[in-house]
Amino acid sequence: MPTEALLARFLDDLAPLRPLAVWAHGSLGGGDYQEGRSDLDLIAILPGPLTPAALVRLIALHRRLRTEPLAGKLHCSYLTPGTAADPARSHPTWAHDGVRRRPVTPVTRSELHAFGRVLHGAPPAAYLPSVPDRELRDFVAADQRDFWRPAVDKERLWTRDVWVDLGLLTFARATVTLRDGRLITKRQALAELPALGAPGEVVEDVTRRRYGEQGPGPSPDRRARLTRAYLGPAIDALVAGYS
């Protein structure tokens, strides 16, 4: 299986840096992983410090992985025991063929505690404090209000599959978190969307594309119109209800 081969090589190549833990979150942790479609979202705890020389070694490691199938989908944030606990801190992250700095969000931290997959070493609880319920809910509401709601107004984005899929699925997941205080997978979010009033033909289109089913779907322009017409008022109502 290409995914398991890639993970095995990644762990072997990372071993000289003496990782204390490596975890998977997202689809791979939550049991909704689809090979070739889903990203491989990882967190590694290194002894540190993450000096410029250490970052050069990490960049070289990821570049060597390019020969492996699916390597472009492997993303990993690098933390140390001294930096892991701070939710506001940004960490070096390999993603999209380069290093960026990103925080490990309350959603990711909560996923790791709820259903993170331990690939090596200690479990998430050894380095990450649990996320208070209010902190998780506040983050989810702010993400809908500050990122997704302005994005709905950018018409050009919504002819692309990724925006339709993530926009709807993230909204459904946010709704369940704010309503019930729990996290759900993307597949579970798809099942929630009809009851939340999402346009049926768009939900069917997302399902077909994500799970390899055949059949016609709406045109990109129609799908964009339906999605935006639904998401704008839905996000407004969700955020207002939480506030």
Rank of each mutant, 00 (worst) to 15 (best):
E135V: 13
W148N: 01
A195E: 12
T185D: 01
G167S: 05
R228C: 07
E192Q: 14
R145I: 08
R156S: 09
L196D: 06
G200A: 15
W163N: 02
P129N: 10
P150M: 11
V152Y: 00
V118C: 12
A122H: 02
V140H: 00
P194D: 13
A142K: 04
R210E: 15
A195D: 13
E204R: 06
P129L: 03
R134S: 04
R179W: 12
R182C: 13
R222A: 13
L178C: 09
Y127N: 02
T170F: 01
R210F: 07
K186T: 08
E213C: 07
V164S: 00
L196P: 08
G217C: 10
R208G: 03
D146A: 10
A198S: 02
R182G: 13
P132C: 06
Y211S: 14
S130G: 15
R225V: 11
V203R: 02
A189S: 12
V162L: 05
P220F: 04
R173K: 08
I184M: 07
R223Q: 15
G167E: 03
P150S: 08
L119N: 02
Y211E: 15
R156G: 04
W148Q: 02
R222M: 11
R145H: 15
R160P: 00
G167A: 07
E204C: 07
P216Y: 05
T185M: 01
D165G: 11
L128H: 07
L183M: 11
A224M: 04
P150Q: 10
A191E: 13
A198T: 00
L190G: 00
P218F: 07
E135F: 01
S130K: 12
A224I: 03
G212K: 07
F171N: 02
P132E: 06
P220H: 13
R173T: 04
L183C: 10
A122E: 08
T177Y: 03
K186M: 09
P220G: 04
T177C: 10
S130W: 14
L178P: 00
H120M: 10
L196Q: 14
P123I: 13
R137Q: 10
T170P: 00
L190K: 08
D138N: 13
T159L: 04
W148I: 04
D161A: 10
L196F: 13
Q144I: 11
G217I: 09
A172H: 02
V164P: 01
T227G: 05
R117Y: 10
D161L: 08
G217F: 03
A126L: 11
G121K: 07
R208V: 06
D165T: 14
A174M: 05
Q214P: 08
H120S: 08
Q214H: 13
F139R: 02
P124V: 06
P220Q: 14
S219L: 05
A229C: 12
T170I: 09
H120W: 12
R228V: 10
K154D: 15
